[in-house]
Simulated scan of single mutants.
Amino acid sequence: MRMRPTLNWTPTGDLPPGTTDLEPVAAALGTGGVLVLSGAGISTESGIPDYRGEGGSLSRHTPMTYQEFTASAPARRRYWARSHLGWRTFGRARPNAGHRAVAAFQRHGLLSGVITQNVDGLHQAAGSEGVVELHGSLDRVVCLTCGAFTPRRELARRLEEANAGFAPVAAAINPDGDADLTDEQVGDFHVVPCTVCGGILKPDVVFFGESVPPSRVAHCRALVDGATSLLVLGSSLTVMSGLRFVRHAAQAGKPVVIVNRDPTRGDQHAVARVTLPLGTALTTVAGQLGIPGDGTL
């Protein structure tokens, strides 16, 4: 492996300008003990849009809140119709070069852990292990009454049977796997209940307006405490669920490096924000660190 650069950092509180210089990323990884925090931006190259970047889904789509989902049967019908259709596309997404690079860094002992704000499972599909899914995962379904978990593929089969011929054309697929459908397209979509108790089913993800489980937050804080530095990949850090870990790292004197095209809410805590596309940036850094690449890292 090539000589690894050293990351020197003095917290100033100044807002770093965006840069295309990959040295801060290579320096952090070269030191080892890096904790990765990823957001929707790392999955855009897999065909899954982000929330807040250019053309992000929040400009045209308001995600359903937990309160709306639990209080309204029509809202649940609307959600499951859209989510069922979106799952057909979302479930076929495959890891891209960014996910594969993160897995390669982990295999080579450069990472102390991986936290993702995404619900797509693509880090695991690329080979990353021990990934903390901060907001849960769309491939699991939980009953809000009895707490039973079932695989999403099983629910998809039941929904297919209950809604034969349901095949509207969606305007777009969103980062949460929700498809954009009109009320007319949703129609009288039939929602199925829990097979154990007949209760309400919900994807095992943290909805807007819902809190991340405290035990999960505590685990992530412990990962930050045990890391040498924090590498943020493709997150705007707009919501507190991710930003709090950036603040925690900075307060502990740990370098924070961000790779994100647009400015983020955590830039003031970072040594640098790299504005290159994630797949290109991480693959290039892997080469600089002597990690052999065969097209899949």
Rank of each mutant, 00 (worst) to 15 (best):
T10L: 15
G18M: 10
V25Q: 07
A26W: 08
L29P: 00
G30A: 07
T31K: 15
V36F: 12
T44E: 13
P49K: 05
E54R: 15
G55T: 04
G56W: 09
S57K: 02
P63D: 13
Y66N: 12
F69Q: 04
T70L: 12
S83D: 10
F90M: 08
R94K: 13
G98N: 02
A101C: 12
A103P: 10
A104G: 05
L111A: 03
S112F: 00
V114L: 06
Q117T: 05
L122P: 13
L122D: 12
Q124E: 14
G127E: 10
E129T: 13
E129C: 00
V132G: 00
T150E: 15
R153Q: 11
E154C: 02
L155D: 13
R158H: 12
N163V: 01
A172T: 00
P175Q: 12
D180Y: 01
P193D: 12
T195C: 04
P203T: 05
R221S: 13
S229W: 02
L231I: 01
T238E: 13
L243E: 05
V246R: 08
V246S: 11
R247A: 11
A252R: 15
V257G: 03
N260I: 00
P263Y: 09
V274M: 14
P277A: 08
P277H: 08
L278A: 10
A286I: 03
